[in-house]
Design a protein around this nucleic acid. Structure first.
Lengths: 253, 253
DNA sequence: GGTTGACATTGACGTTGCGTCAATCTGTAT
DNA sequence: ATACAGATTGACGCAACGTCAATGTCAACC
């Protein structure tokens, strides 16, 4: 089946200008051009345009799209799975926005109070930005004081970078623990650093942080054989030492 | 509280250039300018910017935004309700896109056939949201018993796919919990399924699984206010019910 | 009190993804 | 033969900033 430019545009829901532009930038060429210079499109172009629109929907710029789908290693199904995840992320962001609008309406009606940074929470795409955005009298928030909503959002929207950071944190803990133990003092700066990293690590995967829970987990590391083995494997006495460091850390902050 | 331009930008998650541009086009003026020409922003500007970002999220151009929020008849609550509806529409569109990606994957795999116009259906905005029943085929594989070493290795080398699976599990738990609670019985198959999913979820992030630790965490869900709130948000009584289901689950297996 | 370095200012030009003319040519139905 | 819809290639315009560049300020430290 062959299509003129306007029929093609109609099917796909884009303008003819868009198609001419895509031709111009070599993103999507017509399958052939007739004697009068008319652009003629076919089935392959239909599928390619669909791919393009998928990516466009995710705000990928056209040059990047071109390089992606021109890549001979380009795997359709893999790309689609990626689309899928990104779309779900976008939807989650919308969910948060919708929640925020609800909240703001309640705020306007005087039913609840909103803090300034809460007012922008959902606009931000990643939470790293959120963490950087602690300023002024906006109460240098301690981790432990984070609201549940914040950490829910955190977990649900955890990006790949964050996930990598999390795994890295886990590895750092295993790496630093033996060194910290060498100091012999769970209150030593190094030991406290390990405890701190452990907390950060937790906050990635637990819905919220609390001192009690943190201490509870530290105790489990000692009391439960399997947990214990994990940290003992890194260094003998590791579980106990970590527990002590965490307890000190938690009580101190 | 007063903010310099960069502090303000940081709180709101926009660039200083954006703020200067908004000043230039009279969309958002600083509350005052100091003797050196520095822009100083205050509380009113925070709120106004939030309004602006709401509209921007809906792809309203800045000029229109200005005319809307400068209108003395401007009714905040009404405008917000309008936001709300628009956002929900956007989300519905995303839902359709997500469905389409699924479909396209199936098409690529040769499982189903798609007509050309179907391939662009979801890109078009004006389609009325056709309520397709959406419950994706979930061929969830079972996890057998895992050794400590296996799960340790698993955690350290957790792939992106696994991570996604983990987040999905977390969502499923929140989804199923209310349904399970409706049965009123923590021993019911559905409740036990939730408990099982919870265990699977745990094994992703905990170095190893143990019954004691699992029960311990379940107790924490009830005793710790913050944990509790997380599951209570899904459904009232959710934390207690989940705890009971987990205890039964653990003792049974 | 001089220096430094982060932070502020105002231009001014660049960018992306098209929309929107304008001037002209083609296809086909009557 | 005459319309008239639909095609072509320029060319300019645009929104919403990003990104220099050149320069002025503030607070802190030696």
């Amino acid at each position: 089946m062959e299509y003129t430019i306007s029929r093609f545009a109609n099917i796909a829901g884009v303008s003819t200008r868009t198609l001419r532009y895509y031709d111009e930038i070599n993103l999507l060429k017509p399958s052939r051009v007739n004697s009068a210079g008319y652009r003629i499109y076919g089935q392959k172009e239909i599928d390619r345009l669909q791919q393009i629109l998928f990516f466009r929907e995710l705000d990928v710029d056209l040059e990047t799209i071109a390089s992606i789908i021109n890549d001979t290693n380009f795997n359709h199904i893999e790309a689609l799975s990626h689309h899928y995840q990104e779309l779900v992320r976008k939807r989650d962001r919308l969910d948060r926005l919708i929640e925020m609008v609800k909240k703001t309406i309640a705020h306007e009606k005087g039913e609840i109070q909103m803090k300034n940074d809460e007012k922008f929470e959902a606009f931000k795409d990643n939470l790293l930005a959120e963490n950087e955005a602690k300023y002024g009298e906006e109460t240098r928030e301690k981790y432990g004081e984070k609201t549940i909503n914040e950490s829910n959002a955190k977990f649900k929207n955890m990006s790949k970078e964050q996930f990598e950071k999390m795994t890295q944190l886990g590895e750092e803990i295993l790496e630093l623990l033996p060194q910290a133990l060498q100091t012999g003092d769970p209150a030593s700066p190094l030991a406290q650093e390990v405890a701190n990293k452990h907390k950060e690590w937790l906050t990635f995967t637990w819905p919220s942080y609390s001192k009690e829970a943190h201490k509870g987990l530290a105790d489990m590391y000692v009391n439960d054989e399997r947990f214990k083995a994990y940290y003992e494997k890194a260094v003998k006495g590791g579980a106990e030492f970590l527990r002590d460091a965490i307890h000190l850390y938690v009580n101190q902050s």
